[in-house]
Amino acid sequence: MITDLLKMKTVKANVSASTWKEAARIVGGLLVDTGGAEPRYVDSMILSVEKYGPYIVITPGVALFHARPQDGVKEICMGLITLKSGVDFGAGEKDPVNLVFAFGASDNKTHLKVLSQIMTLLRDKAVVNQILKSNSQKEILEIIEKKFKI
């Protein structure tokens, strides 16, 4: 579940970053600091955008960084940051990005479930706006938990 992965230590509100790479380092750093991934995983996340383009900007304003499990994932993990001011990814009308996820997948089944939950979350524009307006990780977590409460 997305709510098992997003915790006080893997979420940060109102982060300052001036480039997409800086944003990647910050959100990727949350995975490394909490033991979910090795530092080289963050390098691979950045490399994949340099190699394949900004397609990780999945919807206007939102990026989902990831690499392959074999690029240094220790266990399934996710980080989320909101940016004080948006950064450009070179993604045209989908720029600027102000909501940034990093995702490390290990096993395939949980992975699909989490990706599907990210889509559910992002399709709810009101919830996305609430997250962007939040000033603390606590607020962000409460919004997400409320969204997925059965």
Partner: peptide, 12 residues
Amino acid sequence: GMGFGTSLMLKM
């Protein structure tokens, strides 16, 4: 790019 993220979202 890697067959692990966006392609799976699009597939679903």
